[in-house]
Amino acid sequence: MKTLYRYRFQCGILSLLVGLLGLFIHLSPQTFLHSRIYIAFMSTIPFAALLALGLTLLIVAGELDLSFPAIMAVSGFCFSSISQATASPVLGLFGALATGSLAGLCNGLIVVKIGVPAIIATIGTQFFWRGTATLLADGLAVNLTELRETALHHILVGRLFDCLPMQSLWCLVIALFFWMILNRHIWGDDIRFIGDDITTATMMGVKTDNVRIGLFITMGLMSALASVMVCLEMASWWPTQGEGYLLIVFAAIFLGGTSVFGGQGTIFGTITGSIIIGILEAGIISGGLSGYWTRLAHGLVIVVSVSVYAVALKTRRT
């Protein structure tokens, strides 16, 4: 009973997912009782989920990053141009990861060392990196169809046994790793205390600066990885890559019960939240409604669930 209470947020979000799936199966059994739709979900949801994982750690630490879509664009551009120039997508991957971590490092230094609040700093860097990517690419998309049959393609976004999208496996492995970090590792402990009260964390001997900068770098790395996967899956890079992810990723995280005030958050919630956001559109369309309903449904689900969290927290305190 006590355990159930402790995991009530996780139970809540899981019931929401199960409830939605039940509803969709009821509305359009021909779509939702077939494995094809789930394979489609497993190929698209991991991109947002990977971003959400990195952002969850940042938000638990009381920070945020609005520049990750732009970091995706600039590191994806590095990936595509290095892959084409050297004919080695693996080199391209490393180039993208280096670019992503460098961009993350910039955010971290501006926020932690110069002291600009993350929301302002990353709005600025967001424009900067998007502008850089657009300039470098001359505003043009890059065609990457020649990467289709490369080993990297098979490893990152191929289909295991001709059906299971590799990106979903990667996402699962990284989610488990992040869970270990947040719940079982001293780094996760530092993250929680920094987000809870940074003065306390300092007084208790946490090296707050290093941890916070490390989190921005991690977010940069996750953006780069997501971007490379998107490039490979779509067989192209384009200058506005990543733009659609900004609000969806935040929505998934808060839907998953991570506190906007920092100090608390769960990997399980974030993954479940990403799945809910990811299946809504398909559910709505195959349920017979037009795609125009998607945003309205996103809005409803988010507002209702975040309100439920707020009420749950309020009643506990009294």
Binding site: F193, D196, T199, T200, A201
Partner: peptide, 16 residues
């Protein structure tokens, strides 16, 4: 400023 409000007791004992 010596305890993390939203953290469990065991984390507070051993933080750092």
């Amino acid at each position: 400023h010596c305890l993390g409000e939203k953290q469990p007791l065991w984390r507070n004992i051993f933080v750092g």
